[in-house]
Nucleic acid binder design. Sequence first.
DNA 1: ACGCGTGCCTGTTGGC
DNA 2: TGCCAACAGGCACGCG
Length: 278
Amino acid sequence: MPELPEVETVARTLAPEIAGKKIRSLDCLNASSWEDTLPSSCLAVFQPKIRTVGRRGKLLLMFFDPFVLEGQTVLGLAFHLKMTGRLFYYSEPKEAEKHTRIILNLENGQRVFFDDARKFGYCRFFTENSAQTWTFWRKLAKDPLEMAPAEFVQAVKGKNAAVKSVLLQQDIVSGIGNIYADEALFRAGILPDRKAGSLSERELVLLHESLKAVLEDSIRFCGSSIKDYRTAKGDVGSFQNKFHVYGREGQNCHFCGRPLHRKTVAGRTTVYCVCCQK
DNA sequence: ACGCGTGCCTGTTGGC
DNA sequence: TGCCAACAGGCACGCG
């Protein structure tokens, strides 16, 4: 399940391959994977050059030379990988695979595949007025790496929901999913079902530091490959070998040695240590 | 306004 | 061995 470190890794592995190249066309093999009222066929008309590849929260962004269509200034393509989405770069011609949903045809036969077994992911344009026309885009908050400590404290404090639930809300803080929520809460020594509003200023600052640390550590290891996630070059990440809690229910805590517990918080499987987290 | 439960979607896993 | 329910979970949506 690609979260911030995985999307960041895909962006970093994709950028050197496709930056500076023109998009010739887009093939949509599954209608629901193209989530825009503007037609993807306009790419074949404008053939924009990709400038850079970036990330906003868990959205992967391809910025290209803007063009105007139906009164909208199109700035680039946004991909949300959700759970099983993958982006692969191929320098050689390649047949679509079973789960290939979108193919981006570049110059010289090079292509980018958007594969997505469960079809939760999507691709669409982002435009100069996405803040008016795209609710998710408008509400998407900064990620922990972009936030100053005081910004994080301000965003989270006073919320009545469980702190884990708050961490998963992309309009409060972006980029975090089930894995990094559990890992950061463990590092910070905070129980996942504590009400966010019950956390002290010191705990909130520690949680922010823990989030930044776990996200940066994971980026260093090219993200976590549980099952589906790969880099744009098809390589696995290795941060899954560094997990303290995620997927380790019943196994011993790396710090105190006691078995880790599991419960549902915010509707998600949650693993934690009753001894090390308060 | 906010928190919570449900549906979307399909491949994998585990129990009988 | 085969069947099938349970499970994985980000986000939109509807309800109270």
